[in-house]
Amino acid sequence: MAIKNNNQAKQVADTSRKHLIFSLGEEEFGIQVLNIKEIIQMQEITAVPKTAVYVKGVINLRGQVIPVLDLSARFNLPQRQYTPHTCIVVVRLATSMGERLIGAVADGVSEVLSIAEEDIEPSPDFGNGASVPYLLGMAKVRGKVKLLLDTDKVFYIEASQDIN
């Protein structure tokens, strides 16, 4: 993963190193700015029945209906109350059908960081055979660790039949 990041860094120079940092509870995550369409304020999400727990529902993004995920549920983090800082990060995903938009609820976005490749470590191996599937790597910035997300994996929604 680090190698992939490396290549991208060469191609797109600075921009690909830039990551949007957002928080979920105590943890901080990073998503490449290149993959982000926009950040919108929290709005009412229409729940879709018979979907996985981490699918919050759908929202109306200027006439486009896009799904919104609850990453806390995906990462098994405790549920928290919405605050004025709660927002929806809208991410672009490249699919076979073309670009697709998908949102994720975040407790708040803090900053955009340029992360050098040497500061990124491969995703951790906890020794129990299951490495963390959604992580591209971990970045150490000013003594704190940001978890860099693999958007393709973290925003993948399993078909509803597979849920149970």
Partner: peptide, 27 residues
């Protein structure tokens, strides 16, 4: 009528959604 998108394409019980008068989505 709008499509719910491929994400929910195999969702049973729904044919799509629509944006209601207040901007919210109705299934």
């Amino acid at each position: 009528i709008k499509s719910l998108g491929e994400t929910f394409s195999d969702n049973t019980g729904l044919t799509g959604c629509a944006i209601l008068g207040d901007g919210r989505i109705g299934l």
